[in-house]
Design a protein around this nucleic acid. Structure first.
Lengths: 123, 123
DNA sequence: GCATCATATCACCATATACTGATGTAATGA
DNA sequence: TCATTACATCAGTATATGGTGATATGATGC
């Protein structure tokens, strides 16, 4: 482990961790289209409600989304255009290196899910 | 868990996971200055040699770095300028939302390490 | 107040993953 | 060939983290 005094690096890691889970990415992806309530995100992603809430809390604390209460609904949206840009840049990078990425399962590289991988490119 | 058919999202998650660990970020940060051997990275980061090798394997499989053998040394470098840009964008985003990020420890939000957090900004 | 709906939090479990020390392997040089 | 150097891999461990079902909280409407 790196010494804890490298706090800036730890901060960056936590920021990226917000992006590093399929469920959270699905939520962020949904929010690229605009703001959305929790229940809407539950529908869109197919995740359980507590799960979505947990991920949203994480994303909010990470500063990737912001929330506003609206009646009994809570509306979430991306906090900054850079969140969008990061996702966009990542997609562009993926388009270049996609062939390798699916193998990144170090620490015990199972041969499993090397299934079909189509890189649905977003314009 | 999201259905495994959302492979594009899973791919993106794996890409970001490359960035989501302090040790890997320290390695990537070191490589922003140019290529470097494993032993040099061990010195710079203070991590153990097997640990650095593991992280480098991960980063290589993720497509974030590339390696070339040079005698008995192996030289690593960033694979694409977008890796640099992603780090840069993340820093910019952090500068905006830094206040919140350090709290992102969901799933059991301990009050621990809310220590000093200086956001060493890079120009 | 009471019921209901939308969201958040809790307790718990299973797995992923970062780390270490020991060992394997590949390249160089004596 | 044998030793050494540089790096990779392995076995094992501890913890972090994503998931679930149950429950709590908070807002609205009767």
């Amino acid at each position: 482990m790196l010494t804890q005094s490298l706090t800036a690096t730890t901060l960056r890691a936590k920021l990226f961790r917000g992006f590093s889970d399929p469920s959270r990415l699905a939520i962020l992806e949904a929010l690229r289209g605009g703001s959305s309530t929790v229940s809407a995100l539950v529908e869109i992603t197919g995740l359980s409600q507590p799960n979505v809430s947990n991920h949203l809390s994480c994303l909010r604390d990470c500063g990737l989304v912001i929330s506003t209460q609206q009646g009994r609904y809570v509306s979430y949206q991306l906090s900054d255009r850079r969140v969008n840009e990061l996702l966009q840049l990542a997609d562009e990078l993926l388009a270049e290196v996609a062939s390798g990425v699916y193998a990144c399962t170090r620490y015990d590289l199972k041969e499993e899910n090397k299934e079909e991988i189509e890189v649905e490119q977003r314009g």
